[in-house]
């Protein structure tokens, strides 16, 4: 019985110790304790461009600044911000360029509208062809 208590006490002591360690972690390289948040953070890091080594996402860059960006992304996500909010924060500092995923705006709307228009135009041409074929 006494042993059980000792074990329980040890466990209780271990919990604050563990969270203390988590706080001392460096989020530039280490994952968040919450797996769902870590997943969100990683997805965002893949979509943010490193401002030093410009072709790379910050997830795969060794630059100091990329590590610092990863740290801030993890911290912000851990604090409850959504990936979209964190992305918007980075865009407010560095512009659209920092995000690999283009933002929907009047200037970028052709990215979505042109394929759609091409598709509709293609169907229209095809339907005319078929009609002409039937008439023959």
């Amino acid at each position: 019985m006494r042993r059980l208590f000792a074990l329980l006490a040890a466990l209780l002591l271990a919990i604050p110790l563990h969270t203390g360690q988590a706080l001392a972690q460096d989020y530039a390289e280490e994952s968040l304790p919450n797996p769902r948040q870590e997943e969100q953070a990683l997805a965002l890091m893949d979509a943010i461009r490193c401002v030093v080594c410009q072709g790379q996402p910050i997830s795969g860059s060794n630059a100091d600044l990329a590590g610092d960006m990863r740290r801030i992304i993890r911290e912000k996500i851990a604090a409850g911000e959504s990936p979209a909010q964190v992305r918007a924060w980075l865009v407010s500092k560095y512009g659209d360029w920092v995000s690999f995923q283009p933002q929907v705006s009047p200037a970028t709307s052709p990215l979505w509208l042109v394929p759609l228009a091409t598709l509709i135009g293609g169907f229209w041409l095809l339907s005319r062809r078929i009609r002409i074929g039937r008439k023959r």
């Binding site: 401002v51 030093v52 610092d68 960006m69 500092k93």
Partner: peptide
């Protein structure tokens, strides 16, 4: 030390 101010300013180098 962690480029926090640099990032806040939108500075990239």
């Amino acid at each position: 030390d962690q480029s926090r101010i640099q990032l806040m300013l939108g500075s990239s180098g």
